[in-house]
């Protein structure tokens, strides 16, 4: 990055930094000297640890992005939001049914949704968050699970919600209910689980466990990837 000659200015929690154009927020932060110990994870857009709120120059809109995926723009103001406080209720999936009653029992505040769509506006994954909350209210668990499938639980929706709903937790419940009660059983998966239980792969697993790091890496990178 340091070899890039064009720099832009970003404002991190109010302080200005010159950073390379075209870098992600995460690399820009590190370029500026921040050592990230929180609000950073897989760096590949999968883990949801690096949720960030930002505004761009000349635009009043507040936006949400993943620091590892969002490219800086000149005049951007940002703050990382490494965590959003929300209790995680403990529930027994076997004691619930895949309908609106389960939502009411575990997350009754979902029914406070006013359909303002603020959650959808902020979602870095472009998920129709409000739509799945609405599905939860009417008990359409399958559709809620489907719409929320790409959620990384970065938490920005829950931070912005005026009804104080924790959407991503409720969506997780929906996907669990879907998996437990509604998803079509996968015959292949069941056959594979049986085979594992039978011990068909014990020898191969033993072999892998005996390998050192370098050998494992070689196996990993040389692996055969089947694409449909």
């Amino acid at each position: 990055m340091a070899t890039e000659d064009k720099l832009v200015t970003i404002h991190v929690m109010g302080e200005a930094f010159r950073v390379p154009e075209g870098s992600t927020i995460m690399t820009a932060l590190e370029y500026a000297g921040f050592q990230l110990t929180t609000g950073v994870g897989c760096r590949e857009g999968f883990c949801g640890a690096c949720g960030t709120l930002y505004r761009e120059a000349g635009d009043y809109k507040i936006k949400g992005g993943l620091a590892c995926q969002t490219v800086v723009t000149d005049g951007m103001h940002l703050a990382q939001i490494p965590f959003v406080p929300a209790a995680k209720p403990v529930y027994d999936i076997e004691a619930l049914s895949p309908d609106e009653e389960a939502i009411k029992r575990i997350y009754p505040e979902v029914f406070r949704c006013v359909a303002c769509s603020t959650c959808t506006k902020i979602c870095p994954q472009d998920i129709q968050v409000m739509d799945y909350v609405q599905c939860l209210m009417r008990g359409d668990i399958a559709q809620a699970a489907n719409i929320s499938f790409d959620c990384l639980r970065c938490g920005l929706c829950g931070l912005r919600c005026p009804a104080e709903i924790v959407q991503y937790n409720a969506a997780t419940l929906a996907r669990r209910l879907y998996g437990r009660y509604l998803a079509r059983p996968s015959e292949r998966l069941e056959r594979r689980v049986e085979a594992i239980a039978r011990g068909d792969y014990d020898a191969q697993l033993d072999e892998l466990q005996g390998l050192d790091a370098d050998a494992l890496k070689k196996r990993y990178y040389d692996r055969e990837i089947k694409t449909k």
């Binding site: 609106e100 009653e101 009411k104 029992r105 009754p108 505040e109 029914f111 406070r112 209210m137 008990g139």
Partner: peptide, 19 residues
């Protein structure tokens, strides 16, 4: 509203009461 007495409360009741 998690009260068992309201176990079968329809969404229309939950939403209106919360609103």
């Amino acid at each position: 509203v998690v009260d068992p007495a309201c176990a079968d409360a329809p969404p229309i009741l939950l939403v209106s009461a919360m609103r």
